[in-house]
Design a protein around this nucleic acid. Structure first.
Lengths: 144, 144
DNA sequence: AATACAAAAGTAACAAAGTTGCAGTTGAGC
DNA sequence: GCTCAACTGCAACTTTGTTACTTTTGTATT
């Protein structure tokens, strides 16, 4: 039975990335996260002393390889979440809505909720779609 | 017949804001823009010597007053667009999709295209929605 | 039209987030 | 166990935006 570490190794090599301590830790952090994380949030969860520049470069190459995806936020920070198993550099299946809680600020990937399509005026060619909901999440509902 | 300047004056006073040179210029720039602008893009279009801090404060108060709205982007910059006539601090009618061109990078407000709703798992309470499409806009279509 | 006062502007210093260039290190295939 | 491109680490920097504080100004009132 494959351990969590095995899975990380496999994921990296499947995407043509080298096995390095930083990459394994970053991937671990994102895989364990229940919601999208910003660069500095990831940094805080990494082993102390991990270089910030290396982290940003790691995130960039992970994104290019289709390992993680950018999650849009209503503020000016970029957040990332681990892609579901089917993603690759060639084909991103990131067709789900995101939900941002205005209380805890967490952004959830609602993998089971697909983004509805819209009809656009002629001449607009759509390549990708992002749908971000904001409101109050399960955890932050006021007690009844 | 009301001039463009008259309209600016009226818009500011209707929202309880004072008439100042910076506010008039910022509002003018946003009203004239065909697409959403970032802080620094607005700064470039203002009269030379306009203070950057004042600009950011102006944007903040415009947003709070419902004169402009934040437009989410897939990058880490905040962009703003002038609200349509019906918005106020109390009621924002910002229920339209946005379209980002991957070639010219412009973000258009498609005021005529409403955001479709989705059904969420129980316990998620939705307050607002953002829908950002990406692709190629009218201007950037390859010649046929 | 002078006054008063809060709202807005200006100035300086700072902070967070992310990038670039370059030298050194290391994983992985031969 | 060599080789080399891929990756890391350091320094210095840029961009974007903020905070604290002082000065100026728009507007309502007399």
């Amino acid at each position: 039975m494959p351990t969590s570490a095995d899975r990380l190794v496999r994921t990296l090599s499947q995407h043509g990335l080298r096995q390095t301590p930083v990459r394994r830790s970053v991937l671990q952090v994102l895989a364990d996260a229940a919601f999208a994380l910003s660069g500095s949030e990831i940094e805080q969860q990494l082993p102390a002393g991990t270089d910030r520049i290396t982290l940003y470069r790691t995130l960039k190459s992970f994104e290019e390889s289709g390992l993680i995806h950018r999650v849009i936020d209503s503020t000016d920070v970029v957040r990332y979440a681990a892609c579901s198993i089917e993603c690759s550099a060639e084909a991103h299946f990131d067709n789900h809505v995101h939900f941002k809680c205005t209380i805890c600020q967490h952004i959830y990937c609602l993998n089971q909720v697909a983004i509805p399509t819209v009809t656009l005026p002629a001449q607009f060619q759509v390549v990708s779609r992002d749908y971000l909901l904001a409101g109050v999440c399960r955890e932050c509902q006021p007690a009844v």
